[in-house]
Amino acid sequence: MNIFRFSGDMTHLISILVLLLKIYATKSCSGISLKTQELYALVFLTRYLNLFTEFFSVYNTVMKLVFIGSSLVIVWYMRMHRVVKLSYDKELDTFRHYFLVVASFVLALLVHEKFTFQEIFWAFSIYLEAIAILPQLVLLQRSGNVDNLTGQYVFFLGSYRAFYILNWIYRYFTENHFARLISCISGLVQTALYADFFYYYFISWKNNKKLQLPA
């Protein structure tokens, strides 16, 4: 464990807490893409297949349970909660995210570390996470103004993977034989997807204006 990875995990946790706060406090999920939340639930379920087979540390196990649990709770809130589901932007959240799932799975079948069940699903989860934010970014552009908590959610979610990139650089120099290119390249793609959001987020923060994404 290094400070970059720990910061990344904490930033990721904060993003989830901000999202839960928004949904719980405002009893609304307007501006949140259910499809992105479903993709993230799938990412965690397919990435942590070793949850019960390999034990690294209490921290590792607890965080995996928190990520899986919170993503399922958020999907439940947006699909089933009698009040929250009314504010879901169903007609705006129309990204065909099944294509993202299929594309990630096909790529995982082609590019993986070892052709084993767990490695294929691990690579799948890495590729899927890199593009899981797309429905959310499309929804933000369509819904025009972004409320603060939603903007902060996307900001922290995008930042966490940037910390992981620093972690991979750190591991490369300290553990030398660190070879996992799959994560590095996917992580770079994932962070790049947020680039324009970060730009508009910074502009809105500098001018102290509401976050406006160009349509």
């Binding site: 995996k64 691990w122 660190f178």
Partner: peptide, 10 residues
């Protein structure tokens, strides 16, 4: 070590 694969990462 090669074994330090990323499985210990979240």
């Amino acid at each position: 070590t090669e074994g330090a694969s990323l499985k210990d990462e979240l």
